[in-house]
């Protein structure tokens, strides 16, 4: 009877447009990157020269590349160690207040809908050494102006703070959705048994939202690995390359230095690192949390 839904020709027609785009913009680029990563093509020339593993050797031996890897690492560490606890804390708070819940939820989410580029500009303004908000606040308590974006010690931190400001609210709303979907009876039962609010939060709610926290961490890692625009807008990788991340390093080499082949090597490395970090996380942490259900 289901002949209509078994027609392979129609099936193909339905699938082809999306599939073609998908292959063109996801699958082909991976292989293309892989191909050029073994060449010394300058991006302009008509001849493409095979370079073997030279590019990979160069990248792995380049101090600057490792600086950028380290900075991606900072992104991950900062979001996992500082943002995640804050996210959980504020989600629990919002879930448990009765008044103003809607307001909190709406407001915390706001930075996440805005362009990273615009946020970078806005925060550049806040970090401005002479008239920026931060130094004015510090000035009130008598602290000398800090050169947030031009001092190597603070530049990366400044970017991380901005990044956290943009995304914390997004994750709060996500975790909040999970908390609010926990059946109320569990909590009520515990309350009847005499558990305090704090106990209920840590013993009942927290274990139940572990899966979503795991998702938050995964998304933070993915976000950290592809961070680029915030860096380009705020510091262009400076001062002295100290805030370079892998993606900006790649762009710099491929376009500014006429090293398209080498840039693609970096793309391949980004891809590989992302897979490794994701796989590691899955193996080490995600496994044991997988089967919590309610």
């Amino acid at each position: 009877m289901n002949k209509a839904l078994r027609n392979p020709l129609v099936f193909i027609l339905f699938v082809i447009p999306a599939l073609v785009l998908f292959i063109m913009f996801f699958i082909y680029p991976i292989f293309s990157s892989l191909y050029y990563s073994f060449t010394s093509w300058n991006g302009v020339s008509d001849t493409v020269k095979y370079a073997g593993l030279d590019n990979f050797k160069k990248a792995l031996g380049d101090e600057r590349f490792w600086v950028s890897v380290k900075n991606n690492g900072w992104f991950i560490l900062f979001s996992v160690c500082i943002q995640v606890p804050l996210i959980v804390f504020f989600s629990l708070l919002i879930a448990n207040v009765k008044k103003l819940k809607g307001l909190y939820k709406t407001a915390v989410f706001m930075p996440s809908i805005m362009s990273t580029a615009v946020i970078g500009i806005l925060w550049g303004f806040i970090y401005e050494p002479n008239i920026g908000l931060f130094n004015k606040v510090l000035g009130l308590v008598g602290i000398e102006p800090v050169y947030w974006l031009s001092d190597e010690r603070f530049a990366m931190l400044s970017i991380l703070i901005t990044n956290a400001w943009q995304w914390t609210g997004f994750y709060i709303v996500m975790v909040l959705a999970a908390i609010l979907s926990i059946p109320g009876e569990l909590d009520e039962a515990a309350a009847i048994d005499g558990a305090t609010g704090f106990q209920r939060a840590t013993r009942i709610t927290l274990p139940l939202i572990v899966p979503i926290i795991s998702v938050v961490i995964m998304l933070s890692i993915a976000g950290a690995m592809k961070a680029a625009d915030i860096v380009i807008v705020m510091t262009k990788g400076g001062p002295a390359g100290s805030t370079e991340v892998m993606a900006t390093y790649m762009i710099k080499y491929a376009i500014t230095n006429f090293k398209y082949g080498y840039g693609n090597t970096i793309a391949v490395l980004i891809f590989m690192f992302t897979l490794v970090v994701t796989a590691l996380y899955q193996l080490l942490f995600a496994r044991r949390n997988e089967r919590i259900e309610y």
């Binding site: 600057r64 001092d151 190597e152 990788g237 400076g238 001062p239 002295a240 390359g241 100290s242 710099k252 500014t256 230095n257 006429f258 090293k259």
Partner: peptide, 19 residues
């Protein structure tokens, strides 16, 4: 171009920044 990038994006700023 490589040398230009190195001195202008990294080295001179490192010198100024004291690194």
């Amino acid at each position: 171009a490589d040398v230009t990038t190195e001195i202008s994006n990294i080295q001179i700023q490192s010198l100024i920044g004291g690194q």
